[in-house]
Amino acid sequence: MGFCSALALWGAAILQPAAAAPVTAVDDEGRTVSLAQPAQRIIGLGPHTTELLFAAGAGDKVVATVRYGDYPEAAKRLPQVGDAHLLDLERIAALKPDLLVVWMHGSAAAQIDRLRALRIPVFYSEPRRLADVGSSLRRLGALAGTPAAAQAAADRYDAELAALRQRHAGRPPLRVFYQVWHQPLLTVNGQHMISDVIGLCGGVNVFGPQAALVPQISQEAVLTARPQVLVTSTLDGRPDDSLRGWQALKHFEPIARQRVVLLPADHISRPTPRLLLGARQLCEALEGFRVGMP
């Protein structure tokens, strides 16, 4: 089926009469997304967007996802329509979605513009702070017609976040270097969600003032910043080769004092309720490091 044929099929679908009241939500780009009725055929164009939709009670309305959109288990059974860099526009159109939930930094803008030309509503999702996860759940629940389930999930998340914040408030600060990737060496600045997690645990992101959201840095810059703790993520939270460049530096404080934290990647890199699993692990690790410190 060609792109134009898929467009015709999708256009016929949207002419069906609405069966429910209109719904509205503001996305993370500040755009108002309005639907004539709650969405029934949603595509999550990002791993975290798919996970958020399921968490908001809309899993049975998600008809496709992208590569790595693999949580919860039911998401693994969904058809995939591309990845963060290249989308299958014909397949997306053929699925006749009435809402696309897009990861802003993961999807090619030109491709999203082509989907917009089909008049498919697009909700941009880019949570930046821990508090944004609960808000995202509520807004997606509104668009999907699952406000009660979304509200319950958001309330649970907010309560767990508040408890963590209270437990670790006022703890002695620790200087933290977060390694996103090792070749090239990448970190996060103070506007990144991961930096918010570090702050929640009483850590200070040593590269917080950087201008880029995910800046490339040198090993010398890290040594000059003098972090007390090195944090990174791996696929399953187990050691891999990503720390090899640091292990030979016996006088590098995180190595010398064994202050290295390995987190499962999905528990720290995806802005979903599972982010609190990574936050809890990091907070507990930093608290353990504080024991015996002057």
Rank of each mutant, 00 (worst) to 15 (best):
residue 36 A to F: 08
residue 174 L to K: 10
residue 102 V to W: 10
residue 269 S to H: 13
residue 250 K to H: 12
residue 190 G to V: 08
residue 171 R to E: 09
residue 37 Q to N: 05
residue 257 R to N: 08
residue 20 A to D: 07
residue 102 V to I: 13
residue 28 D to K: 13
residue 251 H to D: 14
residue 261 V to E: 03
residue 154 A to L: 13
residue 78 L to W: 06
residue 193 M to L: 15
residue 200 L to R: 05
residue 85 H to E: 13
residue 66 V to H: 03
residue 139 R to D: 10
residue 110 A to R: 15
residue 196 D to W: 09
residue 91 R to L: 06
residue 8 A to W: 09
residue 43 I to W: 03
residue 62 V to D: 07
residue 44 G to Q: 02
residue 263 L to H: 05
residue 191 Q to S: 12
residue 35 L to H: 06
residue 31 R to P: 00
residue 175 R to S: 02
residue 222 V to E: 11
residue 199 G to M: 06
residue 169 A to I: 01
residue 154 A to S: 12
residue 262 L to N: 02
residue 74 A to H: 05
residue 150 A to N: 12
residue 124 Y to D: 01
residue 59 G to R: 10
residue 8 A to Q: 14
residue 38 P to R: 10
residue 23 V to E: 01
residue 84 A to Q: 14
residue 184 P to G: 02
residue 246 W to Y: 14
residue 34 S to A: 15
residue 121 P to G: 03
residue 161 L to W: 07
residue 62 V to Q: 12
residue 55 A to C: 07
residue 92 I to P: 02
residue 165 R to Y: 01
residue 122 V to L: 01
residue 151 Q to T: 15
residue 202 G to C: 06
residue 38 P to W: 07
residue 192 H to Y: 04
residue 103 W to E: 12
residue 226 R to P: 00
residue 176 V to A: 06
residue 10 W to E: 15
residue 52 L to Y: 03
residue 33 V to I: 14
residue 227 P to Q: 08
residue 83 D to G: 14
residue 2 G to I: 10
residue 289 F to A: 04
residue 141 G to T: 12
residue 123 F to E: 08
residue 102 V to F: 12
residue 110 A to E: 15
residue 32 T to Y: 01
residue 116 R to M: 00
residue 107 S to P: 00
residue 231 V to E: 03
residue 39 A to S: 10
residue 222 V to Y: 12
residue 234 T to S: 14
residue 267 H to Y: 09
residue 34 S to P: 00
residue 22 P to L: 02
residue 215 P to L: 04
residue 109 A to E: 14
residue 201 C to I: 08
residue 177 F to Y: 14
residue 233 S to M: 09
residue 276 L to V: 09
residue 213 L to I: 12
residue 205 N to A: 01
residue 45 L to M: 07
residue 4 C to H: 15
residue 50 T to R: 08
residue 212 A to N: 03
residue 108 A to Y: 09
residue 18 A to F: 03
residue 274 R to L: 06
residue 289 F to R: 08
residue 113 D to K: 15
residue 49 T to W: 06
residue 259 R to C: 04
residue 267 H to L: 05
residue 252 F to N: 14
residue 155 D to G: 04
residue 148 A to M: 06
residue 25 A to V: 01
residue 99 L to T: 12
residue 174 L to E: 02
residue 281 Q to V: 07
residue 12 A to Y: 00
residue 216 Q to M: 11
residue 126 E to C: 05
residue 69 G to P: 07
residue 197 V to Q: 07
residue 120 I to S: 00
residue 20 A to I: 03
residue 136 S to Q: 14
residue 218 S to F: 08
